[in-house]
Amino acid sequence: MEWIGAGSLLAWVWLLLGQGFFWRTDVRLPPRTGPERWPTVAVVVPARDEAAVLPVSLPSLLAQKYPGRAEVFLVDDGSTDGTGELARALAGERGGLPLTVTSPGEPEPGWTGKLWAVRHGMALARERGEAEYLLLTDADIAHEPDSLRELVAAARSADLDLVSQMARLRVAAFWERLIVPAFVYFFAQLYPFRRVNRPTARTAAAAGGCVLLRCEAAERAGVPESIRHAVIDDVTLARAVKRAGGRIWLGLADRVDSVRPYPRLGSLWRMVSRSAYTQLRHSPLLLAGTVLGLALVYLAPPAALVTGLAGVLTGGADAGGGTAAGTAAVLGGAAWAVMAATYVPMLRYYRQPVWTAPLLPFTALLYLLMTVDSAVRHYRGRGAAWKGRTYGAP
């Protein structure tokens, strides 16, 4: 335990200082001013069985106060709950930006349903006129009235080809409070925003709920055809744009929110497990490394502290054993303290009590189990399942 505690503490010191300051939550939209001419924007919303959230999200898009021309294209991806009809009714009641509701039919082989819908929406937008930007946003995302204006202003001011904001997810139920902030925290740990936003860095990522994409950059990257198979489509999109020479930006949102509820552990479990093994490229070796890494980084500190304290209290087998136990307790406690401290900014961003930061090892254990379950589902032929569709490895 002494050596394990030392290894965990070293890992946390490196994560604190050497992983792009991933734990900070101050990466927001870059400084921006309104352009002299506001470009035309096509808003593409892929939607499959979203009648439950559409009454909140769609009116927020239609109510955008955008100085230029904008049009909303909602692509009904084979819904069975009346999503398309509801969208038309909401547009008739609320007014605002023009709305077109369309349906592309079942996706062709090799396409995920969402990207097939995005492809259809982009094609329809091209037919309607020369849009300079696309706003790709999910059907469960609600935007404040100035959201589109601020995104375009940021893209124009910093000459960015892709601007993405990670929407603030819902944290109302117990399991949402426990798991959702950690979801964003772990995402930022994998893809530190500061590295994503550095043009010379290889790291690329986006948050699929809110992506403003320059049409010219999409054409250079061959999007969406070049990423048609992607289950984790947002990260794959960002990689394609960056590899094609585009400049990308990713940060946290202040005025863009997800309204999709995850009130039970089961719904959150499915959200994570459906793509966790895909993130690991369906590799058993990467899965084993991830499990060991999560255990060392998140589970070892409390284990070393508890085991060390138990050894100190019992006096150890001898004086040397007691000293080793005390050292393990100190190292484990220090690693746990650093871990909790890095989690505090994310808890504050989500307006959650700071005292819950030491619970992160328990949440990490849940994510470890979700990741293993994702691999099990994949080998049982049920991996990457979403709303009646299952996608295998490309």
Rank of each mutant, 00 (worst) to 15 (best):
G289S: 10
L268R: 12
G293K: 12
L237N: 02
W249I: 01
V256E: 11
R281Y: 10
A230V: 00
P284F: 15
Y262I: 01
R274T: 03
V231C: 05
Y262D: 04
A206L: 04
G289N: 11
A206F: 10
A253G: 07
R220M: 01
L237P: 04
R264M: 06
E225N: 01
P284G: 06
A238K: 08
R255D: 03
T236S: 12
I232M: 13
G251T: 00
V256K: 02
A244R: 04
H282T: 06
R281G: 08
A218E: 04
Q279A: 13
L213M: 13
R220Q: 05
I248E: 06
A253M: 07
R243E: 14
L250Q: 06
V291E: 11
R243S: 06
S273M: 13
L252M: 05
R274A: 10
L292A: 15
V211I: 13
G208V: 11
G222F: 10
D254E: 15
V256Y: 05
R239E: 06
R243P: 00
P263I: 11
R228M: 10
H282P: 07
E216W: 07
R264E: 03
A276G: 11
V259K: 11
S275V: 12
R274V: 00
A244G: 03
V272G: 04
A276L: 08
K242H: 07
L287R: 00
D234P: 03
S258R: 05
V235F: 13
E216K: 00
V291D: 12
C210A: 10
G246E: 06
E216S: 12
G222T: 02
A221R: 02
W269D: 00
R247V: 11
R228F: 11
K242V: 02
P263M: 09
L212T: 07
A221N: 07
Y262K: 11
G245E: 07
K242Q: 09
R274M: 12
A295V: 14
L280R: 12
H229A: 07
A230R: 09
L294V: 14
A240M: 05
S273A: 15
G246N: 01
M271L: 14
W249S: 04
G246I: 00
A218N: 05
K242T: 02
V223W: 14
E216C: 01
G289K: 08
I248L: 02
A288P: 03
A244N: 06
R274K: 15
H229Q: 11
L237Y: 07
M271W: 15
A240G: 04
R264K: 15
L280H: 14
V231K: 09
L285M: 05
V272H: 09
A276K: 09
G251L: 05
A238E: 00
R281N: 13
V223T: 03
R260G: 08
H282W: 15
S226V: 00
P263C: 09
L268S: 10
C215Y: 00
R281I: 07
V291H: 07
A238H: 01
L212E: 14
V272L: 11
T278K: 08
A207D: 04
